[in-house]
């Protein structure tokens, strides 16, 4: 059992999570009885080889997909019992997302994209908080631009700002820097780090990039649908070292 919640309590946790895709002989056990907790106010990275189940873990934690067996909690809410509408509303109020690509709606400008979860819910953005987030990602001058007019790095920072604007309990990021050059990657990850340090945000990020993972407070390593190891306060070197040994 991986425990990291002594100080802050768990923002999200999974108990005995099993996820099976397909039927008959073609079944794939993407998650194999995994249990994990993600502490509030911490930046956690999930790493593992292709097919280790890290994306499935993220999707099921975030309520985008449901488990075959086991339970998932976001805060105090158990997701398995929720209907589609309740899940949708939970996502919009308590969860933020940053994806690798297709993160923005092309017909909306940067500001509209950032406030999208609020406006879908019919809520007004908190002006001060919106300004703080926008300033933090450095997009004050780009708010009326459409995604097509923004660089890849700017687009991902818009996505990051959107994930934070609802003050979610937890932000899930799926390879957020996967399509970015190294400078843009550094800017995005620095922002995510600051979101945790300055705004006490909780972030769970799936990545296969040791540099990205080195921004996290803690890394959970996955293989064959279960946790195999973890590391606190990682550096690029220690991660590379660990990955070498995991492969053995």
């Amino acid at each position: 059992m991986l425990e990291d919640t002594a100080v802050n309590g768990a923002a999200a946790r999974m108990r005995n999570g099993v996820k099976i895709y397909g039927e008959g002989t073609a079944t794939v056990r993407a998650l194999d009885g995994i249990s994990a907790e993600f502490a509030s106010g911490r930046f956690t990275a999930i790493m593992g080889p292709s097919g280790s189940g890290k994306s499935t873990l993220l999707h099921t934690l975030a309520g985008l997909d449901n488990l075959t067996e086991g339970t998932v909690h976001i805060g105090d809410t158990e997701l398995g019992s929720l209907k589609d509408r309740e899940l949708t509303i939970l996502r919009r109020e308590k969860v933020g997302f940053i994806f690798q690509a297709y993160n923005l709606i092309p017909t909306l400008n940067a500001e509209e994209n950032i406030t999208l979860p609020l406006s879908i819910a019919g809520n007004e953005p908190d002006e001060a908080w919106f300004n703080e987030v926008v300033t933090a990602v450095g997009l004050e001058d780009r708010l009326d631009h459409r995604p097509a007019e923004l660089s890849g790095g700017e687009q991902q920072r818009v996505a990051a700002a959107r994930a934070l604007v609802t003050r979610p309990d937890i932000v899930f990021a799926d390879e957020p820097s996967g399509n970015l050059d190294s400078k843009a990657e550094a800017e995005l990850l620095a922002f995510m780090r600051r979101a945790v340090d300055e705004f006490s945000q909780t972030i769970v990020m799936v990545t296969h990039d040791p540099i990205a993972a080195s921004y996290a407070d803690r890394i959970v390593f996955l293989d064959d649908g279960d946790t195999v190891d973890e590391m606190v306060d990682p550096t690029v070197d220690s991660i590379l070292e660990k990955m070498k040994h995991l492969g053995e």
């Binding site: 949708t88 709606i105 979860p117 879908i120």
Partner: peptide, 16 residues
């Protein structure tokens, strides 16, 4: 598909 999926992910209900 992707765009609608994204909208659903960030909280658009089926009705919306």
């Amino acid at each position: 598909t992707r765009e609608i999926g994204l909208l659903r992910a960030v909280g658009m209900t089926r009705r919306q």
